[in-house]
Write a protein that binds this DNA or RNA. Structure first.
Lengths: 212, 212
DNA sequence: TGTACATCAGTGAACGCGCGTTCACTGATGTAC
DNA sequence: TGTACATCAGTGAACGCGCGTTCACTGATGTAC
């Protein structure tokens, strides 16, 4: 029944609504998820929603910000640069598990086309998070902060988003699996090229000496 | 006012509804577009909708099939394989024009996350079209129908979908533009590698002879 | 520390609205003779 | 070829339903004294 809660309880409830909403948005889409449905899933009645948020739009923005933060944190957890960390993350995010479980999956893949039409706050939250991801992947790819590494980071993330998006859309299971395999293969190759290009003078001059 | 139409008129009206729906779905999303809205945009009242389609779901499937067909046709228009046709298409579909004009843009990018949740008919239509695109791009990339060319085709299409999706989401205009530039650059590089790998024996053996 | 009161998180009914869908009706088309 | 009639594309009002949002109410919390 209705009663005032402690500030700690209130803050916890607010976080629970955001987390529940994020999962529902990723599973059934933003427009496909009602405020009452979110509140029920969070164990509350729908009427209390507006004690925490001024509108559904505000919840969308906060849920997306929360999801992007989570992915940025996950990416930051393995700070060491180099091939192992990079490939491990590619393998993880392009796995069948991440394709089949939308709750643990990427918010950009799960809500992509709706985000392009979202309001300014939501797009800004997603965009900020994505820019952080670009910087993190850039550091995985290169100790030096060169422009080519940043290009590769951007291309890597784009490719991952596209491969996972298509992998979820197709009704051909073999093709769905293979799209992920191909993306993993090609992005690993990209990394090899990067490393050959990055610690260059030694290896390249060696080859040149051999060749001449 | 109400009256029976000729069979030709009826067929034309049906096509007009599908075309109008496809544009509306790409612009405002599938869930974001009402049946009445589509009919009004097609110059009709909403009541007549069910003379042409048994449900909104059926219209969604037909609109997506129509859009995919259109993109398959566009891709087929330039049948000649090789670098020029490939790069020209990449440049076109990854242009700011295609990003900013959702009506002419790709249905997979515009409806991506909604398609993953769509019914079996819709997903099948999109999937079939995409498989055709993969085959067409494979032929652009290689006269021989080898597996590596098909991998490159799949990776190319994935990357294009991802780059355009993110380019539409971000609220950072410079980043939005640059994502497309990077995708174009990296995919052009992929093509160069393909060509070096494809007509190989000559060039590669030459290098080997020099090196040894 | 104890008492009195304002605050406000949460409830559940209610609001207007737009959704997908149905239906009785209209009247030119296409068909049967 | 001309006449009579069934067909059915399109109209516009109406349907139940679920949406986002509002509101009067409840009662433990947090505050003022």
């Amino acid at each position: 029944m209705g009663m005032k809660r402690s500030k700690a309880d209130t803050a916890e409830t607010r976080k629970r609504i955001i987390k529940t909403a994020a999962q529902a948005f990723k599973t059934n889409g933003i427009e496909g998820t009602g405020v009452a449905e979110i509140m029920a899933a969070a164990g509350l009645s729908h009427g209390g929603f507006y004690r925490h948020f001024s509108s559904k739009e505000q919840l969308i923005a906060e849920a997306c910000a929360s999801e992007m933060d989570h992915f940025v944190c996950m990416a930051n957890e393995s700070v060491e640069p180099g091939a192992e960390a990079f490939i491990a993350h590619i393998e993880k995010f392009l796995s069948a598990e991440y394709r089949d479980d939308k709750v643990i999956g990427c918010p950009i893949v799960a809500m992509g086309s709706e985000l392009a039409r979202a309001d300014a706050d939501t797009r800004h939250a997603v965009s900020r998070g994505y820019e952080e991801l670009i910087e993190i992947v850039t550091k995985w790819l290169s100790t030096a902060d060169d422009a080519a590494a940043r290009d590769d980071a951007m291309f890597t993330l784009s490719s991952m988003v596209g491969a996972m998006t298509m992998s979820r859309i197709t009704d051909n299971p073999a093709l769905s699996d293979y799209m992920l395999v191909v993306a993993k293969k090609r992005l690993a190759q990209l990394l090899v090229q990067r490393q050959n290009a990055a610690k260059p003078a030694v290896d390249r001059s060696a080859k040149v000496r051999l060749a001449s």
